[in-house]
Design a protein around this nucleic acid. Sequence first.
DNA 1: TTCCTTGTACTAATGTCGTAGTACAACCCC
DNA 2: GGGGTTGTACTACGACATTAGTACAAGGAA
Lengths: 125, 125
Amino acid sequence: MANLFQIDPSDPTPIYAKLERAIRLAIASGRLNAGDQLPTVRQLAVDLRINANTVAKVYAELERAGIVATRRGVGTFVVARRSQAASTRDRERELRMLEDRFLADAAALGYSVEEVLHHLIKRRG
Amino acid sequence: MANLFQIDPSDPTPIYAKLERAIRLAIASGRLNAGDQLPTVRQLAVDLRINANTVAKVYAELERAGIVATRRGVGTFVVARRSQAASTRDRERELRMLEDRFLADAAALGYSVEEVLHHLIKRRG
DNA sequence: TTCCTTGTACTAATGTCGTAGTACAACCCC
DNA sequence: GGGGTTGTACTACGACATTAGTACAAGGAA
């Protein structure tokens, strides 16, 4: 279960941010599905060698965002993807902006669009 | 000149880490070459709206790493070749981090990884 | 020599992060 | 009801990041 999420200790990003991102990606990539239970706060803290409060902070934030649902005494579960409140056009526009920035940043690293796509596809498989 | 480096305020990574990365990658990508002068500590601080000490910290670290050479009263100059500033592995890792952030942000909009890939492919042909 | 520019050094303050430890409420099972 | 598990809340602390402000040393130009 600990292999679901990894955080790179050499990455200077704050731990809570890395963990939140890892959990979001696990869900978006299908490794975690609606109804799946996340590791307990205490277990994940042990697995990742971090403090339980740090895990709890992330779980709380993900619950606030509607990504998970938590129940005391039971655990924390991935919720079904709800239909988004924002309209499809808004979301599509936002996605496009994200794409633009991503592709620009990758270009600044010297990667062409084709290289980026190839890298993403390879990574997903 | 300020367009040489950008740091994304929404990225939770510490500022000094983001700036160091940006400078290293600017060199690795060829946007900065050996002999080029970096912006002054004060100028870059103004451009990026951060404190000059934070810039100075990065410049000091880059000098310790042998990437730049600094002279008081004169300025800070690139001395490294592209491969010294950032290896291919560094660039790949950076791309992966960009991907992580991009995919997590898209997930926050409700898009799965598959959906994002399809959107990108369709968009770019 | 003087003046300006540049990097460096330093102090103090504030906020953020991560932690350890503890306790309690909610839940489940016997 | 009792025991175990789970998430939440809280305090206190140290480390770190960032800042503002200041001063000085080194360098260059006039």
